[in-house]
């Protein structure tokens, strides 16, 4: 009559612990999460291994042949080259540019999110733990920033940086400036969430126990509190990654993002939209589809993660 439980569970290795965990179970039983994760994984792997997968190197001018220009998808050009997703006006393989483009998009998105996370989590921890005046200052900056759209802030930072950096170095630093701009426009979400979680954790007795022993506040923050606020941070980071990728695409679409020598998905879309009405739809369509798939799958993963980590929804 009683429950059928595995008798006497032995300590397990990390791998089997993950397989056995509630999170993994919730993942397995959520079709949306599995599909989203698969798509995201394929796109990420494709981007990482672009030099090995891509049939052409679209950024090597020697391999480009203007005769290949405007070849439609799944057709062979006059020069005898086959293009799965067609070629653009310069004869670059759209499939290859997408692979290389998502590489840039992901690199910028990940770095920017990582930067925003580090900054936001640190400030959130400090604000939540110190409280009072420090908290007020940090949170007011947060509030101000959150009243503007992130893209506007990124544009502003981008513009300021452009003005400070000498023109000769703008090309080489553009990627870093972009990461900085997107990162700085996204840290407030992290700070706000972490501050709230920190204020809850700070009240708990395990922190009091450490304080009685005279443990250094920095140690309390990093070793005691930080591990307990990682759940929400992970959720925001995932959704933030999707936002950062789109933000990068938007900036590049507006022409202020990555340099033209390193086109991202946004750049490709900008180039492609010039040809939409002249009938060469594929130059726009496939990069845009990739962007949507990437952002959507990462976002859905974030949604699932939020639900899975929410103890109130856990069964």
């Amino acid at each position: 009559m009683s429950a059928s439980a595995p008798p006497g569970r032995r300590p397990m290795g990390l791998f089997s612990r993950i397989i056995d965990s509630d999170i993994f179970y919730s993942f397995r039983t959520s079709p949306v999460a599995v599909v989203a994760a698969s798509i995201a994984l394929i796109l990420i792997l494709a981007a990482v291994f672009a030099p090995w997968i891509a049939p052409y190197n679209p950024f090597d001018p020697r391999t480009l042949n203007l005769m290949d220009g405007y070849t439609a998808p799944m057709e062979t050009s006059f020069a005898g080259n086959y293009f799965l997703l067609g070629a653009d006006h310069q004869g670059r393989d759209v499939f290859s540019t997408i692979l290389y483009g998502s590489r840039v998009s992901l690199l910028v998105g990940l770095s920017a999110t990582l930067f925003a996370m580090t900054l936001g989590v640190s400030l959130g921890l400090i604000a939540g733990y110190r409280g009072g005046f420090t908290d007020a200052i940090i949170m007011r900056i947060c509030d101000i920033q959150l009243t503007f759209p992130a893209i506007l802030i990124a544009l502003l930072i981008f513009g300021v940086a452009r003005g400070l950096i000498p023109p000769s170095q703008q090309e080489s630093t553009a990627l870093y400036v972009l990461i900085l701009a997107i990162g700085l426009s996204n840290w407030a979400q992290f700070a706000r969430t972490v501050r709230g979680a920190t204020m809850v954790e700070r009240q708990k007795d395990y922190v009091a126990a450490a304080r009685i022993m005279g443990v250094h506040p920095l140690f309390i923050l990093v070793r005691h509190i930080l591990p307990n606020v990682t759940g929400p941070v992970l959720v925001i980071a995932t959704i933030g990654l999707a936002l950062a990728i789109i933000e990068e695409a938007t900036l590049s679409f507006l022409g202020v993002g990555v340099p033209p020598t390193q086109p991202s998905l946004g750049t490709l879309i900008r180039i492609g939209q010039q040809f939409l009405f002249s009938g060469e739809w594929w130059i726009l369509f496939f990069p845009a589809l990739t962007l949507v798939l990437l952002a959507l799958s990462v976002n859905l993963l974030g949604d699932w993660l939020r639900d899975a980590l929410n103890p109130r929804l856990r069964k």
């Binding site: 009559m1 009683s2 429950a3 059928s4 439980a5 595995p6 179970y25 069964k315």
Partner: peptide, 16 residues
């Protein structure tokens, strides 16, 4: 008898 089906089997919270 009150039972809760879970993924690790059926839990009997109230039994007969």
């Amino acid at each position: 008898t009150v039972q809760f089906p879970t993924r690790r089997g059926i839990l009997t919270a109230v039994d007969d």
